[in-house]
Design a protein around this nucleic acid. Structure first.
Ligand SMILES: [Zn+2]
Ligand SMILES: [Zn+2]
Ligand SMILES: [Zn+2]
Ligand SMILES: [Zn+2]
Lengths: 168, 168
DNA sequence: AAGCGTAATGTTATACAGTATCATTTGCAG
DNA sequence: CTGCAAATGATACTGTATAACATTACGCTT
């Protein structure tokens, strides 16, 4: 699958990448995919997607809500939860269960579970290319006759940069 | 590994195992470990541990709270959260992030992350023996210079029994 | 263009999950 | 017995997510 070879996405842990381009690419892909699927990327939905792409840090629903409210959008909890639900359905975002937060999907369009590395220091999260890992998981589990339908894999720790910092 | 070979624990998905024995064994081990570590398994703590062992289904803090209250224990949220915190620290229980729930650890005494299979139909959860899986994860991640400190691995789907049922 | 059904949004209220803080009690070492 | 630390009690609050129902916008048919 080789996500890292996809020029559209820098690693979340490369702190000096051109993030404007990151966002731009993400929005382009989102528009294209929604058009393809006949899904409506309405203003709130689009704005929420932009917001969770503002950084590579997962954002909580109420953080998003606050931002939306500042920008004059309607701002009751259901507004943002509905937008997030839409983005999850369309495969444009992931939910990070262990943080109660949400993040843009860095390779939408191909169905997959999100496997994440989350830095406890800088808060960045990065999707792991999942194929070989998914394979290991399936092996472990199929032996037991268990049918996996969804996977939560979230590894928390220190990203290369922060690891460096802490050692000083 | 070979948890299934450990006579102290039946698989959560074997619906007709002697669960009384399951609980009994769990409590014995807990007592022993606490004594070893100089930790105090006070009445609330012990009772909470028994409660999360009543079934192989993860229980929410407020479910536990309700039960405690029925039994005349003090029943404000901090009570149960403190007990749970203690049990987590002692390695006697795990938190299931994706369910906001808690479950007894089926092999306490050896430090490990809990990797779980969770049935969406019957609600049972079972710990996977984690070694080979942990190894795959570490491999994937070490390449990237990321230092893993804690892991959340929760696979949801259908257990063998429920899979059977659904196909009828 | 008018009318219609569905999808999306607005609005209010509430359920569920977890924590902060400070007072009080208990267990235990000296 | 005394005094400290750990554990519990009690109150209030913050944070996360959804239920339920009213209203509006959109896209299609006629
Ligand atoms: Zn970026
Ligand atoms: Zn970092
Ligand atoms: Zn365990
Ligand atoms: Zn089941």
């Amino acid at each position: 699958m080789a996500i890292s070879a996809d020029p559209a996405n820098a690693s979340a842990f490369e702190k000096n990448h051109d993030h404007g381009r990151c966002i731009h690419n993400a929005m382009e892909r989102a528009l294209r995919l929604c058009k393809q699927n006949g899904a409506r990327l309405t203003p709130v939905r689009q704005r929420v997607l932009e917001l969770i792409w503002q950084s590579h840090r997962p954002l909580g629903a109420y953080q998003l809500l606050e931002q939306l409210s500042k920008e004059g959008f309607n701002s009751a909890p259901p507004t943002v939860y509905r937008a997030l639900e839409f983005l999850l359905e369309q495969g444009l975002a992931h939910r990070i269960t262990s943080l109660n937060a949400f993040i843009g999907c860095s390779h939408p369009g191909c169905r997959h579970q999100g496997y994440f590395l989350i830095c406890r220091s800088c808060g960045s999260a990065e999707e792991l290319p999942s194929e070989s890992l998914a394979e290991s998981l399936r092996q472990q589990v199929s032996q037991r006759g268990f049918l996996v339908e969804s996977e939560t894999v979230e590894l928390s720790g220190l990203c290369p940069d922060c690891r460096e910092q802490e050692s000083h």
